[in-house]
Design a protein around this nucleic acid. Structure first.
Lengths: 408, 408
DNA sequence: GCACTTTGGCAACACCGTTGCCAAAGTAGA
DNA sequence: TCTACTTTGGCAACGGTGTTGCCAAAGTGC
């Protein structure tokens, strides 16, 4: 690592801490102790970031007997990213600011069977509409731009100084609004199926042989003139949850038309050697069990979806819980987040069913910390938000855990 | 990361490259391109390491039309570490040099039922005998010191300049011999059962309640006056294999009296949040299957060992292969290494049986790279060697992947 | 109003990797 | 044998990193 990389590394460290603190702000000394740097070094780094417009004051904390700390915060509007979630029949695109808050949203219908180029064109149109429609100054949510569910963070979540003098440098009302000078840093695309996230090339989109080998990243990048990152939908969702502060390590299990997982280990997304990690649906949990369409027998996905199909959701949850328990034990994690349409249809049932199996197993294994099983926040927009984080995460040094890319 | 950490980081980077190159040596320009540093920076780093005695010349490479490169190598005798493998009834201790080569070995009988202190005392005696017996100048392998299977690396593996002028600075014959001035960097201890590698405290050694909560690391460290690191046997074995150059990511499956795993992800050992990762034996692969002593049903360990008990090794391999396939798919790795007494008794059968299941699954999943299934090298000394690497790995920046310790 | 505490900027500094330059040590051709 | 030419790698000066010493600013508490 050379000096420039060192500077970037430390700046990312500071930015990530500011991002995680949200609008509340963090003091310099706190940053220093959390990063291991001296307060003076933090001051220099912050000065640079402030010059770039990424960081600003956020009021000051109450005094503890001396000069009160000046708090710092991330400037959310200093940059934006677009996240696109591609599914077989639909598309969700979101514009997200640096702090991860969704500023605008668009949805459209697509058809994978109609060919890759048509889908890419639809995605590109959604992105340009989202970006130009918002950046030109049109208010997000105005009729005709596609609508926006939550254009701004609710007022009570707006960053404000939480001490006496709020008048000082609180966030200006419109600061989160992208302006003409805003920078769109790139586009993240999340979609199902095996793919290579490094090359951004699709591999075998089930049922659509035409897509095999399609260089999605490069095609979309040259179409839009923006950097593009591509990843599996489950990976994107997991990354989004990780940056949302879910936990240091956890698994995101997505049960929709299929069953997949995204793994966050030690704060970073774990993708494995070829973006294939999180292949969860075809974990065998019943030797010589009923055949699965993949050719194997006793896969969780087959067992689980079969139970769903016959209306036995308790059994589906029990099967899913068993596989989740395997994963929890193997990776020593303490949080499982559930998502996907099938889970969404009976959230409490799945949380309770899966939680019971996992808890029972943890209890048997002894004094381990309790394992949480919850529904992943973000709803049906979670994947798109996570896709946007494919672009933003590197800014905060959160690209991935410590995997092939880092090592020579 | 501050400047001192930066220096340490880059020095570790260089040392690791030299270690991996073995006795062949590496040129400065090669180091520069591999580390991303400039040649001049490498020169400075190397100069520091040479002053500390960690690095030396290793002849020169044939000219390519200009001044020939001076090759560099690690000085194996610059430091040593002891690795101790504790089992219920026996103990293996090895003295290992910086390059990971075993210099001396001792074995002894112990009895976990006899209490923790007695076992620690036996371990401490083995360590002191190993260290003093070798360092005082006694030749390793001399009668009475416990014997040494492979005191030195075989002659053909000795580092030599592989070009014209071998006379220059090849490794002196006795250089690998520890001398009175040698430095023992610490002791690594590997043992079964749940424990906390950060605190070095045991948790529940099955069947020996007295061991629960025993602060093994601190007790042994104060007894010996040396730094001590503690970890699970499977983790140590996996770490040893990782530093031995097995692969970037792989799983080590240990089938002995129980079944466990060690996971190496992205070049580093993955321990999970509480050193619990690699809990492989109680992965459920048969829903509602036969009961396991852990209280669950259909665990791999129970199924596999039951098959072994009734002499059906093919079935044992098939069951193990299914669970291994789950792991390979989940983590997207391409190497599985098998070890342990049960595997050792029928190596080819297990390699073939597990390999068949894994390969069949990889084939069905499509164009993935071939997944290797092999026997882990190191034999019954592998765990002890890996335990020694618990001490050495940090020198080479290979402590763990990117996990809780690294993040604040 | 004075003493004290805490924050955080300024200036000088130590030390990291970088750049420019050139001696050393080889090859290739005349 | 001599003269280019190539490649290695050390020396010296440098730019920029985080660090240290110092002190002004801005509070609290008596």
């Amino acid at each position: 690592m050379n000096l420039r990389a060192l500077r970037g590394h430390n700046a990312a460290l500071v930015l990530d801490l500011l991002r995680r603190a949200g609008g509340e702000g963090v003091g310099r000394l706190e940053l220093a102790s959390l990063t291991g740097l001296t307060p003076q070094a933090v001051s220099k780094i912050v000065a640079r970031l402030r010059e770039e417009g990424l960081v600003a004051d956020a009021g000051r904390r109450a005094s503890t007997g001396g000069k009160p700390q000046t708090l710092l915060r991330l400037v959310p509007g200093a940059g934006y990213a677009v996240g696109v979630h591609l599914e077989r029949d639909s598309l969700v695109a979101v514009l997200v600011d640096l702090s991860g808050v969704v500023v605008a949203e668009r949805r459209a219908g697509v058809d994978f069977a109609g060919g890759a180029d048509a889908v890419v064109e639809a995605a590109a149109e959604a992105v340009t509409a989202l970006v130009s429609g918002t950046l030109v100054g049109l208010e997000a949510g105005a009729p005709g731009t596609g609508g926006c569910a939550h254009p701004f963070r609710p007022a009570e979540q707006l960053p404000t100084a939480d001490t006496a003098d709020t008048a000082n440098t609180a966030v200006a009302a419109g600061e989160r609004l992208p302006t003409a000078g805003s920078v769109v840093l790139g586009v993240g695309v999340a979609l199902p199926g095996p793919l290579d996230h490094v090359a951004g090339v699709l591999q075998r989109v089930t049922g659509f042989p035409e897509w095999d080998g399609y260089p999605l990243r490069d095609v979309l990048a040259s179409r839009l003139g923006l950097p593009v990152a591509v990843d599996k939908d489950t990976n994107a969702a997991a990354l989004g949850l990780a940056l949302g502060g879910a936990a240091e390590s956890f698994a995101y299990l997505h049960l929709g038309t299929g069953l997949g997982a995204g793994l966050v280990l030690g704060g970073g997304l774990y993708r494995g050697a070829r973006t294939g990690a999180g292949e969860f649906g075809h974990q065998v949990v019943q030797l010589d069990g009923p055949p699965c369409e993949c050719g194997d027998r006793g896969c969780v996905e087959a067992l689980c979806l079969a139970a769903v199909a016959r209306g036995d959701l308790d059994e589906a949850a029990r099967v899913l819980g068993t596989a989740a328990g395997n994963l929890v034990a193997l990776l020593d994690i303490d949080l499982v987040l559930l998502g996907g349409r099938t889970v969404g249809a009976a959230e409490e049932l799945f949380v309770r069913g899966v939680g019971a199996v996992v808890a029972e197993r943890a209890r048997r294994e002894g004094a381990r910390a309790a394992v949480g099983v919850r529904v992943a926040p973000g709803g049906d927009r979670g994947v798109a938000e996570g896709a946007a984080q494919l672009v933003l995460a590197p800014l905060f040094g959160r690209e991935s855990a410590a995997f092939p890319a880092n090592r020579t």
